[in-house]
Amino acid sequence: MTELDNLPVLNSFFGTDLKSGSLIIASVCIVHPMAYGCSLFMSISYLLVTIWILVALFFAASILLFCGVLKDDALLCCIWVWYTMIFVVVMLMMMILLALVFTSRKQRNRVVIAIIGILWYLLTIYFILIVNSYRKSIGISNKNLYK
């Protein structure tokens, strides 16, 4: 039993089953990092480089999730859940820092984008719960296969 087993269990992803929802989440999370390459944040700073590195690792974890959902592999889903829990906390802090920096520079458009980023990472918490629920359902079905 791990700490992931203590998270709430959800039954559907906006009305779809957990496997389809996890595939949708994996697809969205694979496409998500590409938005950073086309972002309005053109100036290079250590904060932005750190964000880009974290997002690149999130991209790799999302590919693992996609493969895990297709193969019904609970371990690959578990890797994504653990990394994403850390990633969301760090990215929320980074986005808040970016919003504060852009506010001090009176760059309203960038503040709005940072706030949208904060809302996105809050939605990602829901994604974590969906994928973890799917991981639990795979684990239960795999245990039943071996009995």
Rank of each mutant, 00 (worst) to 15 (best):
E3T: 11
E3M: 07
E3G: 11
E3N: 13
N6M: 11
P8M: 05
L10M: 08
S12A: 10
F13R: 01
F14I: 10
F14N: 15
G15C: 06
G15D: 03
T16C: 06
L18R: 05
L18I: 07
L18H: 08
S20L: 09
S20G: 11
S22M: 03
L23S: 06
L23C: 06
L23I: 07
S27C: 12
S27E: 13
C29M: 14
I30P: 01
M34H: 15
A35S: 06
A35T: 11
A35V: 10
G37I: 00
C38F: 13
S39T: 08
M42Y: 15
Y46H: 04
Y46F: 09
L48F: 08
V49P: 00
I53L: 14
A56V: 13
A56W: 15
L57S: 07
F59D: 00
A60E: 06
A60C: 08
A60W: 09
A61D: 02
A61E: 07
A61N: 11
A61P: 03
S62P: 05
I63D: 07
L64D: 13
L65C: 11
F66H: 09
G68H: 10
D73V: 14
A74G: 04
A74E: 05
L75G: 02
L76I: 03
C77F: 05
C78L: 05
C78D: 01
W80M: 05
V81D: 02
W82S: 00
M85F: 06
M85W: 01
F87Y: 13
F87I: 08
F87M: 09
V88F: 07
V89Q: 03
V90T: 13
M91D: 13
L92D: 01
M93Y: 15
M94H: 09
M95L: 11
L97W: 12
A99L: 13
A99F: 09
L100G: 14
F102E: 15
T103P: 03
T103A: 10
R105D: 10
R105S: 08
R108F: 15
R108A: 08
R110Q: 09
V111G: 02
V111S: 04
V112Q: 00
V112P: 01
I113F: 06
I115F: 15
I115G: 02
I115Q: 10
I118Q: 12
L119R: 10
W120D: 13
L122K: 14
L123Q: 12
Y126C: 06
Y126T: 07
Y126N: 12
I128G: 13
I128Y: 07
V131N: 00
V131R: 01
N132E: 04
S133K: 00
S133I: 01
S133Y: 01
Y134F: 13
S137H: 07
I138S: 01
G139I: 00
S141T: 10
N142V: 06
K143I: 04
K143D: 05
K143H: 11
Y146G: 03
K147C: 05
